[in-house]
């Protein structure tokens, strides 16, 4: 490191530090992702010249001032992030970046897991994805044709049940991948438990924890303020390729069910991409109309809103019994 350069750690409670970082990223056409837990900046005097952040095992929000490129600042930052996360028992890191950065990131010990036309997913433990796929395939029920649904189930509602039951009726076997990220109001373990209880009576339905590679539109990084549409498009491509080319193959998945999305623009775009990309991997996409109650689609967000307002009685007709019981037990 050069003498006048210094490193600064910024933790989530440091609002001012995060604001300055966000301002710096803006000058590069990027924006700050509020979900990161740690940010490391390099300063020349008092001015930020390079930054990198991480949210658990995902390295994010990397930016280097144009005048300070090719000085190996990226090496410093990634090294710092690795050491910092290591101390917090996070050993394997991932990075999603533009394909142009592949060589640089590769030189820092990362290997390509999946690439699309524009972006690339790289990891510094090449065995992690392999192990993930091995674990997925342990769920396999012997048959030729299976269906899959990727869901947040935050929490499971009668709307979800309608979709699951339809898939169950039309398929030999249904695998439900629950998105693992835990920004949800209902904790992941509870979401899994409620889903398992609610689908117990469907013998050909299996609940699988989505893990790190089932991204879902809700967990896409959102820090690319410039060309948001382009990046969302890129993420959809990456997510769907991971699913179609690798994950689905482990379980002989030939069909993916998805609920029609009347409200969220991002999700409806994702659904559109799904119909475009998954057939390339021999997976048929079936979009199902949402179940309505009083002319409104039943949604988990409505259930969460009612719960927040304390309207537990109104939740009853929107959710399966297990979910209702969960909210009642929470009230006590």
């Amino acid at each position: 490191m050069f003498d006048n350069f210094s490193k600064k750690y910024i933790y989530s409670q440091n609002t001012r530090g995060r604001k300055t970082t966000s301002d710096f990223l803006k000058t590069l056409g990027l924006s700050f992702d509020e979900n990161v837990n740690i940010t490391i900046n390099i300063l020349d005097g008092k001015r930020i010249i390079a930054t990198a952040s991480a949210e658990k095992n995902l390295i994010k929000c990397i930016g280097v001032d144009e005048n300070y490129r090719s000085k190996g600042l990226m090496n410093t930052l990634i090294s710092e992030i690795i050491s910092h996360q290591y101390d917090n028992n996070i050993y394997d890191l991932s990075i999603i970046t533009k394909i142009e950065n592949e060589k640089v990131i590769q030189s820092l010990g990362f290997e390509t897991i999946c690439e699309t036309e524009n972006i690339i997913l790289m990891e510094n433990n090449k065995n992690k994805f392999k192990k993930y796929l091995e674990n997925i395939s342990k769920n396999k029920v012997a048959n030729e044709q299976s269906s899959a649904i990727v869901m947040n189930l935050n929490p499971i509602t009668k709307g979800h049940m309608y979709l699951i039951e339809k898939a169950s009726k039309e398929s030999e076997q249904v695998y439900i991948f629950i998105v693992s990220e835990d920004k949800s109001k209902v904790p992941f373990e509870t979401r899994v438990k409620l889903a398992k209880e609610s689908t117990k009576f469907l013998k050909n339905v299996k609940i699988i924890e989505g893990g790190d590679y089932i991204i879902s539109s809700k967990t896409f990084p959102t820090y690319f303020s410039k060309n948001v549409d382009e990046w969302i498009n890129n993420y959809c491509n990456l997510d769907l390729k991971l699913f179609g080319k690798y994950i689905a193959k482990e379980l002989n998945i030939r069909k993916r069910y998805v609920g029609k999305e009347p409200y969220c623009e991002l999700t409806s775009f994702y659904n559109k991409k799904m119909k475009e990309i998954l057939p390339l991997y021999n997976i048929q996409v079936t979009e199902i109309e949402r179940l309505e109650k009083n002319q409104k689609a039943i949604s988990a967000s409505l259930v969460r809103k009612l719960a927040e307002e304390g309207n537990i009685s109104q939740i009853k007709e929107l959710v399966p019994e297990a979910t209702y019981k969960y909210y009642i037990s929470k009230e006590d």
Binding site: G72, T76, I78, E80, I82, S83, Y91
Partner: peptide
């Protein structure tokens, strides 16, 4: 336990 040291800066090594 597992452990790490060093950096990936020029002239260094991460172990």
């Amino acid at each position: 336990n597992r452990a790490i040291s060093g950096t990936m800066e020029s002239s260094d090594i991460m172990v």
